[in-house]
Amino acid sequence: MIAIIKYNAGNIQSVANALERLNYECIVTDNPAEIRRADKVILPGVGAASMAMSYLKEKKTDKVIVGLEQPVLGICLGLQLMCQHSEEGDLKCLGIFNAIVKKMPPLDRVPHTGWNNLKERKGTLFTGIQDNDDVYFVHSYAASLCTTTIAICDYIQPFSAALHKRNFYATQFHPEKSAFVGGQILKNFLAL
């Protein structure tokens, strides 16, 4: 069973739909016991970081996430919440990855909206993914490069398109909206 963490953010149903298309059973929950029991956990999210973080704290899901030992995947805002700090609302985040999240400088169009490719991909999350494969991004804040970066996207400046530390994985792009390439990345995560 895959647990999708429920909180006040958009796109949670999109992730559930994507898992259903891949024939995986999932539940959307903020119940700590259900989250701990799941084989895999996904923290999706689109929206404002501070509102999302307050909701996680209120439900005490923040502590649950940090203590998980099964594979966890953060998506988009989920990735940002798993970093140290976000400039969006000067927010202390979960601190799983040592990256800092900052507003993308307005030297090109922001939000970074559309399909872009991934450089310097590392590890099993990207098995079967080629240099010219594109994934879908839509975000105005981005995580800095750090020792746990496993894929880089270069838009305005290079940022962490994916992160991995121990059992924790995260993507800034939306695998659930990235057509068949995104489906492959989700399958790779689900096969961990």
Partner: peptide, 8 residues
């Protein structure tokens, strides 16, 4: 539509 398609 949301169930069937995998792009935005």
């Amino acid at each position: 539509i949301a169930r069937e398609i995998n792009i935005p």
